[in-house]
């Protein structure tokens, strides 16, 4: 029981962390042109001034999904359907 609660908290912490990281990544995609993106980012292209807005939206949506997951997971325990 205690272990399950600890695992649940760990999962929530990871989801919040992933959410923050993904939203930061989204902002980087929106602000920086392709040439200024870190080399390990998908879409990095030397000399390109193109902004990968769509990559940013994708990262933002997944980040938001992580926050929603954490929000449901930390809700009061009631006989409700499992969160998505």
């Amino acid at each position: 029981m205690l272990r399950a609660m600890r695992n649940d908290r760990l999962l929530v912490a990871l989801a919040v962390l992933a959410g923050i990281v993904l939203i930061v990544i989204a902002i980087v995609y929106w602000v920086e042109p392709a040439r200024s993106l870190p080399g390990f980012f998908p879409g990095h292209e030397a000399g390109s001034g193109h902004h990968h807005a769509k990559h940013g939206i994708a990262a933002f949506v997944i980040g938001l999904g992580c926050f929603v997951f954490a929000w449901f997971r930390t809700g009061p325990k009631r006989p409700m359907t499992t969160a998505p």
């Binding site: 929603v68 449901f72 930390t74 809700g75 009631r78 409700m80 359907t81 969160a83």
Partner: peptide, 15 residues
């Protein structure tokens, strides 16, 4: 569902 932090099984709109 966001307010209640869960989906009531009877709430088909939320699901």
């Amino acid at each position: 569902s966001l307010r209640d932090r869960g989906i009531d099984p009877a709430d088909s709109d939320a699901k």
